[in-house]
Amino acid sequence: MALSRGEVILVERLVKRYADGGEVGPISLRVGKGDVYGFVGPNGSGKTTTLRAVLGLLKPTSGRVEVFGMDPWREAKRVNSLLGYSPELPNFPAFLSARQVLEVTGKLRGLRGEDLKREVERVLDLTGLVNHADRRVGNFSKGMVQRLSIGQALIGDPELLVLDEPMLGVDPVGRVQIREVLREVSRTGKTVVFSSHELYEVERLATRVGMVYLGKTVMEGGIDEILNGAGGLRVRVVTRVAPGDGVVEAIRRIEGVRDVRVEGNSLTVFSDNSTDVRDAIAERIVLSGCGLLELRTERPSLEEVFMERVRTVGRG
């Protein structure tokens, strides 16, 4: 299957076998133009391997990888001229200053003279490194290196940003700044792919999500589609007095209800998507005399969806 119009990245059944016997895959993902694509999964699940194949740093054992319609292994230079990359553990030549790292990247992206100077200043400002621009990178803290890493990926305003764990080691202020930068980039119609195992960050930023677990893709889709669909419906009920065992059992017997959890005056009812159980729950509560104070549907967090998916995969 070839890259369709509007798609920036296509990874199809990518498998990578390493010399030490480790294997990742099959992993598939599709990233469309303008997507903020969150690539999630626990450590060692294959996120970095996939991104490195997208960057042309490693050759897939099997499967297919296309970026802007090109094979990154064969056409790494052309692919890399269209994207900016920030690695999981960024390392820069320690004897260069932040400004020199940005200048080198800018030069390799074809920027010269005043254009290069302006672009370097813009990125230094954007990443909050103006006051550290002429310090050697070897003396930078982990958070500053991460900011510089995001900055060098932004040099030259590339069409696609690939960020591997961009929030790793960044303090809360830095996280807010990076989040703002990514939102700004996506507002201009650029495509962003970022990996993370911090699911709340992905939930806040991503428009599309791909989940990998044990080296395989277990779910992919729009963030709303995943959160509204995959985890089922969740109804939160607050009552005047704590509900007794009888009413909990009655709710459990409602068709479509999968589970009921009780915490004091609050009940959380998990049901299938196919059945709207809200009327039935309200009826049972009112009839029980517990006093219905509040009933609202909630969508599960990405973390809950992921854990549910992991349990499903684990069961077989």
């Binding site: 042309g56 230079k77 990359y85 690695p87 080198v104 992206r109």
Partner: peptide
């Protein structure tokens, strides 16, 4: 060893360059 091979090989340069 310094982890900077990634830095260079993800710039717009070919491996020959």
């Amino acid at each position: 060893e310094a982890g900077t091979a990634d830095f260079w090989l993800t710039r717009p340069i070919s491996r020959s360059e």
